[in-house]
Design a protein around this nucleic acid. Structure first.
Lengths: 230, 230
DNA sequence: TTCCTAAAAAATGAATGCAAAAGATCGGCA
DNA sequence: TGCCGATCTTTTGCATTCATTTTTTAGGAA
Protein backbone atom coordinates (compact mmCIF):
# COMPACT_ATOMS: atom_id res chain seq x y z
CA UNK A 1 0.00 0.00 0.00
CA UNK A 2 1.44 3.34 -1.03
CA UNK A 3 1.92 5.71 1.82
CA UNK A 4 -0.31 8.70 1.27
CA UNK A 5 0.32 11.66 3.51
CA UNK A 6 -2.53 12.42 5.94
CA UNK A 7 -4.09 15.28 4.04
CA UNK A 8 -2.73 18.40 2.47
CA UNK A 9 -5.73 20.43 1.33
CA UNK A 10 -3.72 22.36 -1.27
CA UNK A 11 -3.47 25.39 0.95
CA UNK A 12 -6.51 27.21 -0.33
CA UNK A 13 -5.24 30.46 1.08
CA UNK A 14 -6.13 33.88 -0.26
CA UNK A 15 -6.84 33.08 -3.87
CA UNK A 16 -4.00 34.74 -5.72
CA UNK A 17 -5.14 36.62 -8.79
CA UNK A 18 -4.40 34.95 -12.10
CA UNK A 19 -3.63 31.60 -10.53
CA UNK A 20 -6.49 29.14 -10.79
CA UNK A 21 -6.98 26.18 -8.55
CA UNK A 22 -6.32 23.95 -11.51
CA UNK A 23 -2.85 25.40 -11.99
CA UNK A 24 -2.00 24.93 -8.36
CA UNK A 25 -3.20 21.37 -8.43
CA UNK A 26 -1.19 20.68 -11.55
CA UNK A 27 1.99 21.96 -9.97
CA UNK A 28 1.32 20.15 -6.71
CA UNK A 29 0.60 16.86 -8.43
CA UNK A 30 3.60 17.13 -10.70
CA UNK A 31 5.85 17.76 -7.74
CA UNK A 32 4.23 14.92 -5.88
CA UNK A 33 5.13 12.55 -8.70
CA UNK A 34 8.55 13.97 -9.55
CA UNK A 35 9.59 13.77 -5.92
CA UNK A 36 8.93 10.07 -6.08
CA UNK A 37 5.98 9.59 -3.77
CA UNK A 38 4.65 7.00 -6.17
CA UNK A 39 6.73 4.07 -7.29
CA UNK A 40 7.63 3.43 -10.90
CA UNK A 41 4.85 1.73 -12.77
CA UNK A 42 2.53 2.10 -9.81
CA UNK A 43 -1.10 2.88 -10.27
CA UNK A 44 -2.03 6.48 -9.60
CA UNK A 45 -4.71 6.24 -6.92
CA UNK A 46 -7.34 8.70 -8.08
CA UNK A 47 -9.55 8.51 -5.06
CA UNK A 48 -6.77 8.80 -2.52
CA UNK A 49 -5.24 11.75 -4.29
CA UNK A 50 -8.61 13.46 -4.29
CA UNK A 51 -8.73 13.14 -0.53
CA UNK A 52 -5.08 14.08 -0.26
CA UNK A 53 -5.63 17.37 -2.05
CA UNK A 54 -9.19 17.92 -0.89
CA UNK A 55 -10.74 18.13 -4.33
CA UNK A 56 -13.09 16.10 -6.47
CA UNK A 57 -12.17 13.82 -9.32
CA UNK A 58 -12.88 16.26 -12.11
CA UNK A 59 -9.96 18.66 -11.59
CA UNK A 60 -7.70 15.79 -10.66
CA UNK A 61 -8.45 13.98 -13.88
CA UNK A 62 -7.84 17.16 -15.84
CA UNK A 63 -4.42 17.39 -14.26
CA UNK A 64 -3.74 13.74 -15.05
CA UNK A 65 -4.45 14.32 -18.73
CA UNK A 66 -1.94 17.13 -18.77
CA UNK A 67 0.72 15.09 -16.99
CA UNK A 68 0.11 12.28 -19.44
CA UNK A 69 0.66 14.70 -22.32
CA UNK A 70 3.89 15.76 -20.64
CA UNK A 71 4.98 12.15 -20.53
CA UNK A 72 5.13 11.79 -16.78
CA UNK A 73 2.42 9.16 -16.61
CA UNK A 74 0.77 6.69 -18.94
CA UNK A 75 -2.96 6.72 -19.34
CA UNK A 76 -4.37 3.32 -20.17
CA UNK A 77 -7.97 3.28 -21.39
CA UNK A 78 -10.34 2.05 -18.69
CA UNK A 79 -7.35 1.11 -16.64
CA UNK A 80 -6.32 4.38 -15.10
CA UNK A 81 -3.01 6.16 -14.86
CA UNK A 82 0.34 4.62 -14.08
CA UNK A 83 3.65 6.25 -13.27
CA UNK A 84 5.63 6.00 -16.45
CA UNK A 85 8.59 3.69 -16.27
CA UNK A 86 11.76 4.88 -17.91
CA UNK A 87 13.74 2.13 -19.55
CA UNK A 88 17.37 2.79 -20.33
CA UNK A 89 16.43 3.33 -23.96
CA UNK A 90 13.90 6.04 -23.12
CA UNK A 91 16.30 7.61 -20.68
CA UNK A 92 18.87 7.79 -23.43
CA UNK A 93 16.36 9.55 -25.63
CA UNK A 94 15.45 12.06 -22.95
CA UNK A 95 19.08 12.85 -22.22
CA UNK A 96 19.75 13.40 -25.90
CA UNK A 97 16.88 15.82 -26.14
CA UNK A 98 18.12 17.61 -23.04
CA UNK A 99 21.51 17.77 -24.72
CA UNK A 100 19.93 19.25 -27.82
CA UNK A 101 18.08 21.82 -25.79
CA UNK A 102 21.20 22.82 -23.90
CA UNK A 103 23.10 23.00 -27.16
CA UNK A 104 20.45 25.36 -28.44
CA UNK A 105 20.54 27.36 -25.24
CA UNK A 106 24.30 27.76 -25.56
CA UNK A 107 24.02 28.88 -29.15
CA UNK A 108 21.36 31.45 -28.35
CA UNK A 109 23.14 32.57 -25.21
CA UNK A 110 26.24 33.42 -27.22
CA UNK A 111 24.19 35.72 -29.38
CA UNK A 112 22.95 37.92 -26.59
CA UNK A 113 24.67 37.29 -23.31
CA UNK A 114 26.22 40.34 -21.67
CA UNK A 115 29.72 40.52 -20.21
CA UNK A 116 28.16 40.89 -16.78
CA UNK A 117 26.24 37.66 -17.20
CA UNK A 118 29.34 35.84 -18.39
CA UNK A 119 31.18 37.19 -15.36
CA UNK A 120 28.43 35.89 -13.11
CA UNK A 121 28.70 32.42 -14.64
CA UNK A 122 32.47 32.65 -14.34
CA UNK A 123 32.10 33.34 -10.66
CA UNK A 124 29.92 30.30 -10.10
CA UNK A 125 32.35 28.30 -12.21
CA UNK A 126 35.19 29.22 -9.92
CA UNK A 127 33.14 28.37 -6.88
CA UNK A 128 32.51 25.03 -8.52
CA UNK A 129 36.22 24.58 -9.13
CA UNK A 130 36.93 25.17 -5.44
CA UNK A 131 34.35 22.53 -4.52
CA UNK A 132 36.04 20.23 -7.01
CA UNK A 133 39.44 20.73 -5.43
CA UNK A 134 38.00 20.06 -2.00
CA UNK A 135 36.08 17.07 -3.31
CA UNK A 136 32.84 18.51 -1.98
CA UNK A 137 30.35 16.74 -4.14
CA UNK A 138 27.24 18.52 -3.01
CA UNK A 139 28.44 22.07 -3.46
CA UNK A 140 29.95 21.13 -6.79
CA UNK A 141 26.67 19.70 -7.92
CA UNK A 142 24.73 22.81 -6.92
CA UNK A 143 27.08 25.05 -8.87
CA UNK A 144 26.93 22.73 -11.83
CA UNK A 145 23.17 22.90 -11.92
CA UNK A 146 23.26 26.65 -11.49
CA UNK A 147 25.57 27.11 -14.47
CA UNK A 148 23.37 25.07 -16.76
CA UNK A 149 20.33 26.96 -15.56
CA UNK A 150 22.03 30.29 -16.15
CA UNK A 151 22.93 29.35 -19.70
CA UNK A 152 19.34 28.40 -20.46
CA UNK A 153 18.13 31.64 -18.96
CA UNK A 154 20.70 33.64 -20.90
CA UNK A 155 19.13 32.27 -24.07
CA UNK A 156 16.12 34.42 -23.19
CA UNK A 157 13.66 32.15 -24.92
CA UNK A 158 10.51 31.35 -22.94
CA UNK A 159 9.49 28.43 -25.15
CA UNK A 160 12.92 26.89 -24.71
CA UNK A 161 12.89 27.41 -20.95
CA UNK A 162 9.49 25.78 -20.63
CA UNK A 163 10.47 22.78 -22.73
CA UNK A 164 13.75 22.45 -20.89
CA UNK A 165 11.98 22.54 -17.54
CA UNK A 166 9.55 19.88 -18.69
CA UNK A 167 12.30 17.48 -19.73
CA UNK A 168 14.31 18.23 -16.63
CA UNK A 169 11.28 17.20 -14.58
CA UNK A 170 10.90 13.95 -16.44
CA UNK A 171 14.53 13.08 -15.85
CA UNK A 172 14.85 14.36 -12.32
CA UNK A 173 13.15 11.35 -10.77
CA UNK A 174 15.85 9.13 -12.19
CA UNK A 175 18.70 11.54 -11.84
CA UNK A 176 18.37 11.54 -8.08
CA UNK A 177 19.08 7.87 -7.76
CA UNK A 178 21.63 7.27 -10.45
CA UNK A 179 23.76 10.32 -10.64
CA UNK A 180 25.84 10.90 -7.60
CA UNK A 181 27.93 7.82 -7.09
CA UNK A 182 29.67 7.07 -10.35
CA UNK A 183 29.86 10.69 -11.40
CA UNK A 184 32.95 10.74 -9.20
CA UNK A 185 34.99 8.81 -11.74
CA UNK A 186 34.09 11.32 -14.39
CA UNK A 187 34.70 14.29 -12.18
CA UNK A 188 37.94 15.45 -13.73
CA UNK A 189 36.57 15.02 -17.21
CA UNK A 190 33.39 16.91 -16.39
CA UNK A 191 35.43 19.72 -14.90
CA UNK A 192 37.48 19.96 -18.07
CA UNK A 193 34.33 20.08 -20.13
CA UNK A 194 33.08 22.92 -18.01
CA UNK A 195 36.31 24.80 -18.65
CA UNK A 196 35.63 24.43 -22.34
CA UNK A 197 32.06 25.57 -21.91
CA UNK A 198 33.15 28.72 -20.16
CA UNK A 199 35.86 29.36 -22.71
CA UNK A 200 33.46 29.05 -25.63
CA UNK A 201 30.98 31.25 -23.86
CA UNK A 202 33.60 33.94 -23.28
CA UNK A 203 34.44 33.91 -26.95
CA UNK A 204 30.74 33.83 -27.86
CA UNK A 205 31.54 30.80 -29.99
CA UNK A 206 27.99 29.56 -30.43
CA UNK A 207 28.59 26.59 -32.71
CA UNK A 208 31.41 25.36 -30.56
CA UNK A 209 29.54 25.78 -27.30
CA UNK A 210 26.61 23.98 -28.83
CA UNK A 211 28.73 20.93 -29.62
CA UNK A 212 30.42 20.92 -26.25
CA UNK A 213 27.15 21.12 -24.35
CA UNK A 214 25.62 18.27 -26.30
CA UNK A 215 28.61 16.04 -25.71
CA UNK A 216 28.75 17.11 -22.07
CA UNK A 217 25.22 15.81 -21.58
CA UNK A 218 26.05 12.69 -23.54
CA UNK A 219 28.94 11.91 -21.28
CA UNK A 220 26.93 12.62 -18.20
CA UNK A 221 24.29 10.19 -19.36
CA UNK A 222 26.83 7.53 -20.19
CA UNK A 223 28.31 7.83 -16.72
CA UNK A 224 24.87 7.66 -15.12
CA UNK A 225 23.87 4.63 -17.16
CA UNK A 226 27.14 2.85 -16.53
CA UNK A 227 26.44 3.42 -12.86
CA UNK A 228 22.87 2.22 -13.12
CA UNK A 229 23.85 -1.07 -14.76
CA UNK A 230 26.82 -1.63 -12.47
CA UNK B 1 -19.88 34.86 -35.31
CA UNK B 2 -17.51 31.98 -35.86
CA UNK B 3 -18.74 29.49 -38.38
CA UNK B 4 -19.18 26.18 -36.65
CA UNK B 5 -19.70 23.24 -38.92
CA UNK B 6 -23.13 21.61 -38.60
CA UNK B 7 -22.11 18.65 -36.49
CA UNK B 8 -19.36 16.13 -36.76
CA UNK B 9 -20.02 13.59 -34.03
CA UNK B 10 -16.39 12.45 -33.87
CA UNK B 11 -17.12 9.32 -35.83
CA UNK B 12 -17.75 7.01 -32.93
CA UNK B 13 -17.28 4.02 -35.15
CA UNK B 14 -15.99 0.65 -34.03
CA UNK B 15 -13.98 1.65 -31.00
CA UNK B 16 -10.43 0.98 -32.04
CA UNK B 17 -8.42 -0.80 -29.39
CA UNK B 18 -6.00 1.34 -27.42
CA UNK B 19 -7.48 4.60 -28.65
CA UNK B 20 -9.74 6.23 -26.11
CA UNK B 21 -12.40 8.75 -26.94
CA UNK B 22 -10.36 11.34 -25.12
CA UNK B 23 -7.41 10.84 -27.44
CA UNK B 24 -9.57 11.15 -30.50
CA UNK B 25 -11.16 14.29 -29.20
CA UNK B 26 -7.77 15.76 -28.41
CA UNK B 27 -6.52 15.12 -31.92
CA UNK B 28 -9.72 16.39 -33.49
CA UNK B 29 -9.75 19.56 -31.43
CA UNK B 30 -6.09 20.26 -32.03
CA UNK B 31 -6.58 19.88 -35.77
CA UNK B 32 -9.66 22.05 -35.59
CA UNK B 33 -7.61 24.83 -34.04
CA UNK B 34 -4.42 24.36 -36.04
CA UNK B 35 -6.39 24.43 -39.27
CA UNK B 36 -7.56 27.88 -38.32
CA UNK B 37 -11.28 27.40 -37.74
CA UNK B 38 -11.04 29.81 -34.86
CA UNK B 39 -9.56 33.26 -35.27
CA UNK B 40 -6.51 34.44 -33.36
CA UNK B 41 -7.43 35.63 -29.92
CA UNK B 42 -10.98 34.39 -30.33
CA UNK B 43 -12.86 32.83 -27.49
CA UNK B 44 -13.12 29.06 -27.66
CA UNK B 45 -16.85 28.37 -27.56
CA UNK B 46 -17.16 25.47 -25.15
CA UNK B 47 -20.83 24.82 -25.64
CA UNK B 48 -20.75 24.96 -29.42
CA UNK B 49 -17.76 22.67 -29.60
CA UNK B 50 -19.57 20.19 -27.38
CA UNK B 51 -22.40 20.09 -29.87
CA UNK B 52 -19.97 20.06 -32.76
CA UNK B 53 -18.26 16.94 -31.48
CA UNK B 54 -21.28 15.42 -29.83
CA UNK B 55 -19.80 15.17 -26.35
CA UNK B 56 -20.32 16.74 -22.98
CA UNK B 57 -18.25 19.46 -21.42
CA UNK B 58 -16.10 17.23 -19.22
CA UNK B 59 -13.97 15.58 -21.92
CA UNK B 60 -13.84 18.81 -23.87
CA UNK B 61 -12.49 20.70 -20.91
CA UNK B 62 -9.91 17.99 -20.33
CA UNK B 63 -8.75 18.43 -23.89
CA UNK B 64 -8.61 22.19 -23.45
CA UNK B 65 -6.31 21.85 -20.45
CA UNK B 66 -3.95 19.73 -22.51
CA UNK B 67 -3.96 22.16 -25.42
CA UNK B 68 -3.29 24.98 -23.00
CA UNK B 69 -0.29 23.07 -21.65
CA UNK B 70 0.90 22.64 -25.24
CA UNK B 71 0.68 26.37 -25.72
CA UNK B 72 -1.99 26.38 -28.39
CA UNK B 73 -4.53 28.25 -26.29
CA UNK B 74 -4.53 30.47 -23.25
CA UNK B 75 -6.69 29.58 -20.30
CA UNK B 76 -7.85 32.60 -18.34
CA UNK B 77 -9.39 31.87 -14.95
CA UNK B 78 -13.16 32.24 -15.02
CA UNK B 79 -12.84 33.66 -18.47
CA UNK B 80 -12.49 30.59 -20.61
CA UNK B 81 -10.06 29.66 -23.32
CA UNK B 82 -8.77 31.87 -26.09
CA UNK B 83 -6.79 31.03 -29.17
CA UNK B 84 -3.26 32.06 -28.37
CA UNK B 85 -1.97 34.94 -30.38
CA UNK B 86 1.57 34.71 -31.63
CA UNK B 87 3.43 37.98 -31.66
CA UNK B 88 6.52 38.25 -33.82
CA UNK B 89 8.66 37.87 -30.73
CA UNK B 90 7.03 34.61 -29.74
CA UNK B 91 7.19 33.39 -33.29
CA UNK B 92 10.91 34.06 -33.31
CA UNK B 93 11.26 32.01 -30.15
CA UNK B 94 9.31 29.12 -31.57
CA UNK B 95 11.33 29.09 -34.77
CA UNK B 96 14.56 29.09 -32.81
CA UNK B 97 13.41 26.10 -30.80
CA UNK B 98 12.39 24.35 -34.00
CA UNK B 99 15.84 25.12 -35.31
CA UNK B 100 17.40 23.66 -32.20
CA UNK B 101 15.30 20.53 -32.50
CA UNK B 102 16.19 20.09 -36.16
CA UNK B 103 19.83 20.67 -35.33
CA UNK B 104 19.57 17.90 -32.77
CA UNK B 105 17.76 15.67 -35.22
CA UNK B 106 20.54 16.17 -37.78
CA UNK B 107 23.20 15.37 -35.24
CA UNK B 108 21.48 12.20 -34.10
CA UNK B 109 20.61 11.19 -37.65
CA UNK B 110 24.28 11.30 -38.61
CA UNK B 111 25.04 8.81 -35.88
CA UNK B 112 22.71 6.12 -37.08
CA UNK B 113 21.29 6.79 -40.51
CA UNK B 114 21.78 4.02 -43.05
CA UNK B 115 23.05 4.48 -46.59
CA UNK B 116 19.63 3.43 -47.83
CA UNK B 117 17.96 6.17 -45.83
CA UNK B 118 20.42 8.75 -47.09
CA UNK B 119 19.73 7.55 -50.61
CA UNK B 120 16.02 7.98 -50.02
CA UNK B 121 16.52 11.54 -48.85
CA UNK B 122 18.80 12.14 -51.81
CA UNK B 123 16.04 11.02 -54.11
CA UNK B 124 13.53 13.43 -52.61
CA UNK B 125 16.19 16.11 -52.72
CA UNK B 126 16.58 15.63 -56.45
CA UNK B 127 12.84 15.69 -56.95
CA UNK B 128 12.88 18.95 -55.06
CA UNK B 129 15.61 20.28 -57.28
CA UNK B 130 13.53 19.49 -60.34
CA UNK B 131 10.61 21.40 -58.86
CA UNK B 132 13.00 24.25 -58.17
CA UNK B 133 14.17 24.36 -61.77
CA UNK B 134 10.58 24.35 -62.98
CA UNK B 135 9.62 26.95 -60.40
CA UNK B 136 6.88 24.68 -59.11
CA UNK B 137 6.42 26.06 -55.64
CA UNK B 138 3.98 23.53 -54.34
CA UNK B 139 5.89 20.39 -55.25
CA UNK B 140 9.08 21.99 -53.98
CA UNK B 141 7.44 22.75 -50.70
CA UNK B 142 6.17 19.21 -50.27
CA UNK B 143 9.62 17.74 -50.88
CA UNK B 144 11.14 20.26 -48.53
CA UNK B 145 8.80 19.25 -45.73
CA UNK B 146 9.39 15.58 -46.48
CA UNK B 147 13.16 15.96 -46.17
CA UNK B 148 12.92 17.66 -42.81
CA UNK B 149 10.51 15.03 -41.62
CA UNK B 150 12.80 12.24 -42.78
CA UNK B 151 15.75 13.72 -40.93
CA UNK B 152 13.75 13.91 -37.72
CA UNK B 153 12.62 10.34 -38.19
CA UNK B 154 16.14 9.19 -38.91
CA UNK B 155 17.11 10.48 -35.48
CA UNK B 156 15.00 7.62 -34.11
CA UNK B 157 14.14 9.44 -30.92
CA UNK B 158 10.48 9.30 -29.92
CA UNK B 159 10.75 12.12 -27.39
CA UNK B 160 12.32 14.34 -30.02
CA UNK B 161 9.69 13.45 -32.61
CA UNK B 162 6.87 14.22 -30.21
CA UNK B 163 8.34 17.55 -29.19
CA UNK B 164 9.09 18.45 -32.78
CA UNK B 165 5.53 17.63 -33.80
CA UNK B 166 4.16 19.76 -31.00
CA UNK B 167 6.17 22.81 -32.03
CA UNK B 168 5.41 22.23 -35.68
CA UNK B 169 1.72 22.34 -34.80
CA UNK B 170 2.07 25.58 -32.93
CA UNK B 171 3.82 27.20 -35.86
CA UNK B 172 1.76 25.68 -38.63
CA UNK B 173 -1.17 28.04 -38.14
CA UNK B 174 1.10 30.95 -38.90
CA UNK B 175 3.22 29.21 -41.48
CA UNK B 176 0.26 28.80 -43.78
CA UNK B 177 -0.30 32.49 -44.18
CA UNK B 178 3.18 33.91 -44.12
CA UNK B 179 5.39 31.46 -45.85
CA UNK B 180 4.72 31.06 -49.49
CA UNK B 181 4.99 34.48 -51.04
CA UNK B 182 8.32 35.91 -49.98
CA UNK B 183 10.01 32.56 -49.75
CA UNK B 184 10.42 32.97 -53.51
CA UNK B 185 13.17 35.55 -53.06
CA UNK B 186 15.05 33.18 -50.86
CA UNK B 187 14.51 30.21 -53.08
CA UNK B 188 18.00 29.98 -54.49
CA UNK B 189 19.56 30.44 -51.09
CA UNK B 190 17.31 27.81 -49.53
CA UNK B 191 18.20 25.39 -52.29
CA UNK B 192 21.88 25.95 -51.66
CA UNK B 193 21.37 25.33 -47.96
CA UNK B 194 19.66 22.08 -48.79
CA UNK B 195 22.65 21.05 -50.88
CA UNK B 196 24.82 21.63 -47.83
CA UNK B 197 22.42 19.67 -45.65
CA UNK B 198 22.57 16.69 -47.94
CA UNK B 199 26.33 16.93 -48.24
CA UNK B 200 26.84 16.99 -44.49
CA UNK B 201 24.43 14.11 -44.10
CA UNK B 202 26.31 12.04 -46.67
CA UNK B 203 29.53 12.62 -44.79
CA UNK B 204 27.78 11.96 -41.47
CA UNK B 205 29.15 15.29 -40.29
CA UNK B 206 26.87 15.73 -37.32
CA UNK B 207 28.23 18.97 -35.89
CA UNK B 208 28.24 20.60 -39.27
CA UNK B 209 24.76 19.44 -40.18
CA UNK B 210 23.56 20.67 -36.83
CA UNK B 211 24.81 24.18 -37.53
CA UNK B 212 23.47 24.24 -41.06
CA UNK B 213 20.01 23.14 -39.99
CA UNK B 214 19.78 25.72 -37.27
CA UNK B 215 20.78 28.51 -39.63
CA UNK B 216 18.48 27.14 -42.31
CA UNK B 217 15.52 27.54 -39.96
CA UNK B 218 16.77 30.96 -38.91
CA UNK B 219 16.84 32.15 -42.49
CA UNK B 220 13.46 30.68 -43.20
CA UNK B 221 12.03 32.55 -40.25
CA UNK B 222 13.68 35.79 -41.26
CA UNK B 223 12.19 35.49 -44.73
CA UNK B 224 8.76 34.71 -43.31
CA UNK B 225 8.90 37.62 -40.89
CA UNK B 226 10.17 40.02 -43.52
CA UNK B 227 7.17 38.95 -45.56
CA UNK B 228 4.76 39.34 -42.68
CA UNK B 229 5.85 42.90 -41.95
CA UNK B 230 5.99 43.91 -45.62
C1' DT C 1 -5.56 -28.43 -3.43
C1' DT C 2 -5.86 -25.97 -7.65
C1' DC C 3 -8.10 -24.02 -11.33
C1' DC C 4 -11.97 -22.05 -13.49
C1' DT C 5 -16.31 -19.49 -13.43
C1' DA C 6 -19.52 -16.15 -11.73
C1' DA C 7 -21.04 -12.70 -8.77
C1' DA C 8 -19.73 -8.67 -6.02
C1' DA C 9 -16.97 -4.69 -5.42
C1' DA C 10 -14.41 -0.99 -7.05
C1' DA C 11 -12.63 1.89 -10.55
C1' DT C 12 -13.03 4.44 -14.70
C1' DG C 13 -15.11 7.55 -18.34
C1' DA C 14 -18.44 10.67 -19.30
C1' DA C 15 -22.91 13.41 -18.37
C1' DT C 16 -25.38 16.27 -15.54
C1' DG C 17 -26.23 19.55 -11.76
C1' DC C 18 -25.21 23.61 -9.10
C1' DA C 19 -22.99 27.75 -7.08
C1' DA C 20 -20.24 31.58 -8.39
C1' DA C 21 -18.34 34.68 -11.69
C1' DA C 22 -18.31 37.12 -15.99
C1' DG C 23 -20.81 39.25 -19.67
C1' DA C 24 -24.94 41.32 -21.71
C1' DT C 25 -29.13 43.95 -21.48
C1' DC C 26 -32.00 47.50 -20.15
C1' DG C 27 -33.54 51.51 -17.64
C1' DG C 28 -32.31 55.82 -15.18
C1' DC C 29 -30.04 60.06 -15.11
C1' DA C 30 -27.27 64.02 -16.51
C1' DT D 1 -28.35 61.94 -26.74
C1' DG D 2 -24.88 59.57 -24.24
C1' DC D 3 -23.11 57.43 -20.02
C1' DC D 4 -23.57 54.74 -15.79
C1' DG D 5 -25.44 51.22 -12.76
C1' DA D 6 -28.65 47.35 -11.62
C1' DT D 7 -30.52 43.14 -13.10
C1' DC D 8 -30.74 39.23 -15.90
C1' DT D 9 -28.46 35.76 -18.80
C1' DT D 10 -24.70 33.04 -20.01
C1' DT D 11 -20.54 30.83 -18.93
C1' DT D 12 -17.29 28.81 -16.02
C1' DG D 13 -15.41 25.63 -12.40
C1' DC D 14 -16.15 21.98 -9.77
C1' DA D 15 -18.97 18.31 -7.44
C1' DT D 16 -21.87 14.68 -8.05
C1' DT D 17 -24.13 11.02 -10.43
C1' DC D 18 -24.60 7.18 -13.68
C1' DA D 19 -23.42 3.56 -16.89
C1' DT D 20 -19.42 0.48 -18.09
C1' DT D 21 -15.54 -1.79 -17.51
C1' DT D 22 -12.17 -3.94 -14.79
C1' DT D 23 -10.63 -6.19 -10.72
C1' DT D 24 -11.44 -8.82 -6.78
C1' DT D 25 -13.52 -12.38 -4.34
C1' DA D 26 -16.21 -16.36 -3.44
C1' DG D 27 -17.77 -20.85 -4.83
C1' DG D 28 -17.63 -25.22 -7.05
C1' DA D 29 -15.72 -28.93 -9.90
C1' DA D 30 -11.81 -31.73 -11.30
Amino acid sequence: MPVVAPAMPLQGESARPGVSLHDELLVALRDYIVEGHLADGARVPERQLCERFGISRTPLREALKVLAAEGLIDLLPNRGARIRELGSEELRELFDVMGGLEALAGRLACERISDAEVAEIERVHHDMYRFYLRREMHGYFQCNQAIHRMIVEAAANAALSATYASFAGRIRRVRYSANLAKERDRWGEAMREHEMILDALRRRAGNELSDILFLHLRNKRKAAQAEASA
